[in-house]
Amino acid sequence: MFESVMWLIVVAGGPLLLVALLAYVVVTRRRRGPAERRESDRATDRLYRQDKN
């Protein structure tokens, strides 16, 4: 009996956990807007310029 319950948990729970994790990543992923990208590029350029000196 215990073996069949464990098998059910592994077979059904694994994919459900994976789907839940993928859904969480898709929902929480945020894209940067144009202004944020420009600011990030400027900061990167400043860091590279400082590193050369």
Rank of each mutant, 00 (worst) to 15 (best):
P15Q: 07
D41K: 08
A20R: 12
P15T: 04
N53Q: 12
L21R: 07
M6I: 07
D45A: 06
Y24K: 14
M1F: 00
T44I: 05
V11N: 02
R32W: 14
T44Q: 13
W7R: 15
T44G: 13
G33I: 01
G33R: 13
M1P: 02
A35C: 08
Y24S: 10
K52R: 15
A12N: 10
G33L: 00
R37D: 03
A12Q: 15
V19Y: 14
V27N: 07
A35I: 07
L17A: 07
V5K: 11
Q50S: 03
L8A: 05
V26H: 10
I9E: 14
Q50C: 07
L47V: 05
R38I: 01
E36Y: 05
R29I: 09
I9Y: 08
D41G: 08
F2C: 01
R42A: 08
D45V: 00
V10W: 15
L47M: 06
T28H: 14
L21N: 11
I9R: 15
R29F: 10
Q50H: 04
R42M: 05
E3R: 14
D51S: 05
G13T: 03
E3Y: 14
R31M: 04
L16I: 10
S40M: 12
D51R: 13
R37G: 02
T44A: 09
A43M: 11
S40N: 11
A23M: 14
S40L: 15
N53R: 15
P34V: 00
